[in-house]
């Protein structure tokens, strides 16, 4: 067990070192430029990355790669919704990296404690469905996997229903399979639990 931890630490150290090197080699995403390029986004997602209405996602503190992938999917017509296809149409890969750098560096949304019964059920379903194995221990997201912590309950529930029905793109089949067995009540509970996290 200890050995495993040490291995993990070494692996992380390697990851960080090489991550830094490759960041320096490649064109680094620029959060300052990203803010300028994000002006159009603010009307709905806020300059603080917090959606101005319950059906608009909070994108503050999302992992940069997850924002990058969602915007590319909108641009390429693989995902649709909220007019995002139009907003992303003329963005280059570098534009998207900069925008992702800006929003990912913002403070995460404040947790919202909803119905405690729902939150407890949601936590249990999260464990039983191994959501943490990709979305990370506090559902804060990692790499291409989005942050769910602090997400708007309405938005999160809509997306899970869309993934379940196939209306939202499912890249490798994992989320489709994960959502297939969920009832509407399960989805509400999961959304309540995610919103309660920081």
């Amino acid at each position: 067990m200890l050995l495993r931890n040490i291995k993990a630490i070494i692996a992380m150290a390697f990851f960080n070192i090489f991550g830094l090197i490759s960041c320096q080699l490649l064109a680094a995403p620029d959060a300052v430029a990203g803010k300028t390029k994000s002006q159009t986004c603010f009307a709905c997602h806020g300059a603080d990355g917090i959606g101005v209405a319950p059906n608009i996602p909070n994108i503050a503190a999302q992992p940069p790669l997850s924002l990058f992938y969602q915007l590319v999917q909108f641009r390429e017509g693989m995902r649709k919704g909220g007019g995002m296809e139009t907003f992303s149409k003329n963005l280059s890969d570098d534009d998207i990296r900069d925008i992702a750098a800006y929003f990912s560096a913002l403070p995460p949304p404040a947790p919202k404690m909803g119905d405690p019964v729902k939150v407890a059920v949601g936590q249990k379903i999260t464990q039983q469905n191994y959501c943490n194995s990709c979305h990370a221990p506090q559902l804060q997201g990692q790499k291409q996997v989005p942050r769910l912590a602090g997400q708007s309950t309405e938005y999160a529930a809509t997306q899970l229903r869309n993934i379940r029905s196939g209306a939202r793109v499912d890249m490798d089949g994992t989320m489709g399979s994960a959502a297939r067995g969920l009832s509407d009540e399960d989805i509400e509970a999961l959304a309540a639990y995610a919103a309660s996290l920081n």
């Binding site: 379903i125 039983q128 469905n129 379940r164 297939r180 067995g181 969920l182 009832s183």
Partner: peptide, 16 residues
Amino acid sequence: APAPAPAAASAVPPTW
């Protein structure tokens, strides 16, 4: 798609 909720009751992991 909307199968009855096995999640809360069952310990069987989802297919994936």
